[in-house]
Amino acid sequence: MNFTAADLPKVRRLTVTWATEAGMSVEAADDFVIAVNEIATNAVRHGSPKASLRLQVTGGAGLAEIRDSGCWEAAMAPAPLPRRPAEQGGMGLEVARLVCDGLQIKATSAGTAVLLRMALR
C-alpha cells in the first residue's frame, strides 16, 4: 500500500491483521507493528511525504518492506549515529532493530528501503 503520515493508523491496522493471519504470535505481531510504524514514521517524516509498504511471507518469516524516495540521515550513515538523549527522539530505528528478527537498510540517493523480518511461529 502507498501511504502518507495521515495513513499511519491504517498502516498499523493492516500490518497487525496481516501478521496475525500470516501466523505470528500475538506478541510477535505487536512487535512487528511497532517496528513497521517506527520505520513508516521515519519514511514519511525524514524521507518523502509518500512512501510504500509491502508485506510478504518468505522462508518462514514475515517481511515488511518500507520504501520512500528520500534520504534520511540515520539510514544513510555509514556507521551507527551516536546515541542522543531520549527527548531528542531518534529511537525508532533502534527500537525496530530490537524487536525484529532482522533489519536491513538499502539507502541510495534515489530513496530508502528498510526491510524488517519477523519469524513466524
Binding site: P9, T41, A86, E87, Q88, G90, G92
Partner: peptide
C-alpha cells in the same frame, strides 16, 4: 491505544 517513540520522546522532554 498506541504510543510511538516520538511521543515517548515528547514525554521525556517534559519530564526533564
Amino acid at each position: 491505544t498506541f504510543m510511538d517513540t516520538g511521543c515517548l520522546a515528547v514525554i521525556v522532554g517534559h519530564w526533564k
